[in-house]
Design a protein around this nucleic acid. Sequence first.
DNA 1: AGGCGGTACTG
DNA 2: CAGTACC
DNA 3: GCCT
Length: 689
Amino acid sequence: MSSAHWMASSPPQDTVQETAPGNMPKSSLRLSSLPPIFISESHFKDINELHRLEDDVVETGGLLSYNLHEAKIVLTRVLSKKRITMDLRSKDCYTEEVLVVKDISVADTGTDPAAGHKAKRGKLSGEYEDGKKETEESILHEVSTDSENEDEHKPKNRSTKRKRVASSVEQDPNKAYFSNPYIKVLKWEWFTDSQKQDRVLPIEPYLLYQGQIIDKPEDPKTPGKGSSFTARTKTPQSILERARADAENDTSSPVQQRSNRKLGQIGGGRVSAPFQTTPHSKRAALLHQTTSEHDLGQSSDLPEMPPWVQNDVKYACQRSTPADPPNAAFIAQLDKIKLARLLTGDEIGVRAYSTSIAALAAYPHKLSTGREILLLPGCDAKIANLYVEFANYGKIQEAEDAENNEELKVQKLFYNIWGVGATTARDFYKEKGWRDLDDVVEYGWQTLTRVQQIGVKYYDEFLLPIPRSEVEDIAATIHKHAVKLRDAGIQSLVVGGYRRGKEHCGDVDIILSHPEESKTLNIITDIVASLEQESWITHTLLISTKTSDRGQQTLALNSSSTHGHGFDSLDKALVVWQNPHYIPSTSNPSDSKTKNTNPHRRVDIIISPWKTVGCAVMGWSGGTTFQRDLRRYVRQTYDYKFDSSGVRDRKTGDVVDVDGEAGTMEQAERNVFGALGLEFREPWERCTG
DNA sequence: AGGCGGTACTG
DNA sequence: CAGTACC
DNA sequence: GCCT
């Protein structure tokens, strides 16, 4: 994208040297002869700063305008063209880009926008070789086109204008620009740099966008856009959403369940306001609620609390958490709020909701009152209030709002790209101004990391659930290769969601080990190579061949006589998998080269040395909250540090053997539970989310 | 008022 | 160093 | 958001 290069380049700092601003007491910059100037508020921290800067402009005689239909200059801190046109549109200013071709000799050189666009469509149909960059030429001073309207199929030449601007201007390099009627969006630095140099600098190096104002386009919706990619991405509802929908259709709706409940038990009869409580009044309000319920003679008898509640056992690794708890519908609502916390970057909020959810998921009874929730570890007034709302109305406004929020919807779409986290998803939305995957591909493909490109390429396929049988097939293939590369002593175990019993898995996690320590050394490289060789692995997202810091391990140093260095290596590879065996198209037998349509899968291959394989299995089998709580439990109880490659004493750094002697991975894992003073939990009891 | 899991790779 | 990944 |  030539525009990207162009935009990224900084304005030349050596444009003019002659002025020595030092002896000027006050800026003598005069902007009074320039067209009206509009300042875009985007990226200004607060209104005051904006006003101050507006004052600065006024001080130079600049004609400040608040109407984009009269302003000819827009100063902005935004850099991306997409975002600029969005900003303009938000002020009811619709534009078509007007190209600036400075030098005739470079005009029309391979920047046909339609062609570029088409090429990217091709990528999405799978013809794209990831990793290979689509080299788009960066032509200095030529603004690549892109009509701002959403209509993908509009012929680009209709919306594209090219305007030649005199290049070798004698006196005023801006004259040619200001003699045309187009609106010009400049980097804010044009003004500040001009201030510094006390003269009106040429706008060209700062010109981000030049546009002609057009009428507001009709057809704001464009219902069927014909873009297969866009259509595809919207079709398969995310698993999460479907799970939620299911949960909400739960026949045992809490509304009927608690039909005798009076509305607005907290403080009044209103819907949302009562749930906004001040920190100090929260618990009191709820207690009052339960008291009044008691006074009304309703059954306030709570079921007998499970031992972990009675004993205030607070770590998720200390209790049984099934996959389908009685309060799944309520949990589904909390999950929506949690997702919103995640997307907005509130990691602590995520942690808090995760804790509450894990406790609720472990609770074996259908909830009946808000007071009940207060007894659960990790749950307090906020969650109890949400429950009361849920019990009364069958839904939670905050959750509904989060789910329906357009911004969050788009950010979730981006977040689902492998390699894109919450921060980048927000960046795509807020800074880049992208709204769907087509935008990502069209405007940002080259800025994506390698793995993000792969993530986009297989966006839909990575979201497809993997049946258990296919997980087993994949595991068998990996095991077979491992045996081939070493010997039949290789043991393997599928962990992750599969081991917790999920019917459909998001990915495949498999741990490989071997009772002889030497047999697992460097095997990850060999396995990946071997599977690549047979075309099972199409991409390696990440491979970790070092067990980084473990150099200091006394145990490894002394006991393992096997190797000179002999350290553990809990290696892993995160790869993209595709079954290379496909039916060569029954419908089109003549076509010898039909495409392999088997979906690409995400597969994690983990290698563990035998002596810590119990930790590896344990660390890869539980839900996230189970893992976090396990680590907190181990720290709190023993001041040890747990991770999937072993346990160490935090004070001494010594390795603690929790694996014991075991003949199988499962036995090793049981030993770890025991050594850590934990009751064994079956994998399907670790569904903490 | 401070803490919230621990580790490794990428860019 | 920030961001993302794994559970 | 909850816990210490």
